[in-house]
């Protein structure tokens, strides 16, 4: 069962990387990175049970807490063009052509 889930997670990682490589829009890539982070969390958890040491579960939790930071920064850059501003720019249509 754990072996099967390991293989399934690795397959999911591969597909996420393919989506991240091919794009074509920024949003596809953001989603791919986010999904890859989730797959890594799951892989760590499953590997912990596979090798008989589930104490790596804490690490999986830490990854889950960390992986969204980059996604938030990237989305902020894509939609605002800046990291510090919180105001939405006037030309809203332009951001969707990315």
């Amino acid at each position: 069962m754990i072996v099967l889930s390991t293989l399934a997670i690795l397959a999911a990682m591969t597909m996420a990387i393919i989506r991240g490589l091919r794009g074509p829009t920024v949003y596809d890539r953001v989603l791919a990175v986010n999904m890859f982070g989730t797959a890594t969390v799951l892989l760590i958890a499953v590997l912990g049970f596979l090798t008989g040491r589930p104490d790596f579960l804490d690490l999986a939790l830490l990854y889950a807490l960390l992986s969204f930071i980059g996604t938030v920064a990237l989305l902020k850059y894509v939609s605002y063009g800046d990291l510090s501003s919180s105001e939405h720019p006037e030309e809203e249509e332009d951001t969707w052509t990315w």
Partner: peptide, 26 residues
């Protein structure tokens, strides 16, 4: 495309971290 490069860099880091973990260096 540099935005894509930054995102793939994140994936690269996650893969490295996974490998470190497999090698018992949490």
């Amino acid at each position: 495309d540099l935005v894509a490069v930054v995102m793939l860099g994140g994936i690269y880091s996650l893969l490295c971290a996974g490998l470190f973990l497999v090698m018992d260096a949490p």
